[in-house]
Every structure is written in structure tokens, then in C-alpha cells.
């Protein structure tokens, strides 16, 4: 698909003397995020001595560069040139069917969250596992995937008091976002469930499962399945894989 006409021109913001942020907008939406990721892909292809790194986020990307190798003006010109051929149809994406054990020990906030919204736990699970989520960005901690487009009926303010330690693999809801936690850590988000997958494992050939732009669908599983899959992953017998998918399947 081509871009709808009249896309706003991004703003350039200085993030110090070795990084430039290209801001496409100030909202969380799929079109803005696609623009971010397309530019990220194009700039990544030019990484080297001058362009050192590219970090795509919800609605902007930050380009790290070496100012003794490329001037700020030259970098801006390079980015403007990349934007000239903006087209969003060709961005390939992977889809992951992520197994999730909702509620119980794996998701201790499921019942409270359901009660907050006057729903049953089953209704929460149905709403949470229905959408095809987009990985809007990976950040905060290694491999931590922020997913967009959580059903409005599940938007929930964060906990007043964060938990000091939540397990790796937690499937969380905080505000209007949902996420897959990659490593154990403190969190103020609500724990709905847990996946036996490890989205970050530095010992694996591919340490990170998810990348910005990937699609994620949650598949509810029971506690027994969870235990079996977790054991298989621990033994190294099972490796999470994306499902195959036509690259051009616009929603």
C-alpha cells in the first residue's frame, strides 16, 4: 500500500551531539509506527562508521551517529533522501502465536482486573487473546516487547505500588498498553498470564525473539501445557518459531 496522501513531515530533534531523533508524530498508531520502522530499515542498511545505530520506538526513531564522520547537516540530508521514497507496503513482518497461561499462579491479577471492569476472567482472556497485536517497539529492558492496540475495554491504570519482582515471560497490561516481559524485574503493570517462551536468552543463537514490526497473537493454554512447554524449552527441545505468512497481508 502507498501512503495516504499528505503525511506530515517528520521533525528533527537533537538528542545530544551524537544522536538525532526523527519524530513522525506524538500518538500511538499503526501508520505512524510503520513510517518509523520503514525509515529504520532503510537507515539500518546504511549503518557503518557514520551511522552507528538506529532505535525505532512508537512514533519516532533515534539515529546514533559519529559526528566526526558525518555532520548533522549531512545526516539530515541522508534521512530526507530516505524519506523521499516512503512506501509502506513492502515492510515484511513475522507473526508469532504466543502460548499464554492466563490467571492462577501465572497471572495473579486476572481476577482483580476482571472485577475492575465488571467482567469474568474468561471475558478478559477472550478480549486479550482476540487481536493481532503489532510489536510497536522493543525497549526498556533486553527483549521487552511493547504491543499496540489493546482493546479499550481492558485499559487499566497501573498499580499504585509497583511489584519489586515479576517473572520473565509475564503478559502484562498497563494503561493502554500490553507487553511481553522478557526478563524478571520490577513492574507496576497488571499480570494477566505468563508464556513459557523466553523472549530474551543470550545463550540462544538468536537471543531476541521479537522485533519491532512483528505481529503477535496470544493463544490461551492450560497450566499443564504451560509446564510441559516450559520444561521442553528448558531442555532445549523446543524453540519458539514464527508462523509462516505472506509478507503482503494488509489489515
Amino acid at each position: 500500500m502507498s501512503l495516504p496522501p499528505k503525511q506530515p513531515t517528520p521533525r528533527f530533534l537533537l538528542a545530544g551531539d551524537r544522536a538525532l531523533t526523527v519524530e513522525f508524530g506524538q500518538t500511538i498508531d499503526a501508520l505512524t509506527n510503520r513510517r518509523v520502522q520503514q525509515l529504520a530499515a532503510r537507515l539500518n542498511a546504511q549503518r557503518g562508521d557514520a551511522i552507528v545505530g538506529v532505535v525505532p520506538t512508537y512514533r519516532s526513531l533515534t539515529v546514533s551517529y559519529e559526528p566526526l564522520r558525518i555532520s548533522l547537516d549531512a545526516l539530515r540530508a541522508k534521512i530526507v533522501a530516505c524519506l523521499a521514497g516512503e512506501q509502506l507496503g513492502s515492510v515484511p513482518s513475522r507473526r508469532w502465536l504466543v502460548p499464554v497461561c492466563y490467571g492462577g499462579e501465572c497471572g495473579e491479577d486476572l481476577e482483580t482486573l476482571a472485577a475492575t471492569h465488571d467482567m469474568t476472567p474468561g471475558e478478559v482472556i477472550a478480549l486479550h487473546s482476540a487481536p493481532v497485536y503489532r510489536v510497536y517497539m522493543v525497549g526498556f529492558l533486553p527483549g521487552f516487547a511493547y504491543l499496540g492496540d489493546l482493546d479499550q475495554r481492558l485499559h487499566t491504570p497501573r498499580r499504585a505500588v509497583p511489584r519489586p519482582l515479576t517473572p520473565a515471560g509475564s503478559i502484562n497490561v498497563g494503561g493502554q498498553q500490553t507487553a511481553i516481559a522478557s526478563v524478571a524485574g520490577p513492574s507496576g503493570w497488571h499480570l494477566l498470564g505468563r508464556t513459557p517462551w523466553r523472549s530474551f536468552d543470550p545463550q540462544r543463537v538468536n537471543p531476541f525473539l521479537f522485533a519491532a514490526g512483528d505481529e503477535v497473537v496470544f493463544t490461551p493454554i492450560g497450566e499443564k501445557d504451560y509446564a510441559q512447554m516450559a520444561a521442553a524449552i528448558d531442555r532445549g527441545d523446543d524453540l519458539p518459531r514464527p508462523v509462516s505468512r505472506e509478507p503482503e497481508d494488509e489489515r
Binding site: A15, G16, R18, T21, Q26, T62, F140
Partner: peptide, 11 residues
């Protein structure tokens, strides 16, 4: 609050 974006050394 902003919509989360990248943080660099020295931000």
C-alpha cells in the same frame, strides 16, 4: 509524559 521514545547516554 511523552509517548515513550529512545534514551541515550546523558539524556
Amino acid at each position: 509524559d511523552i509517548v515513550s521514545d529512545a534514551i541515550v547516554a546523558g539524556s
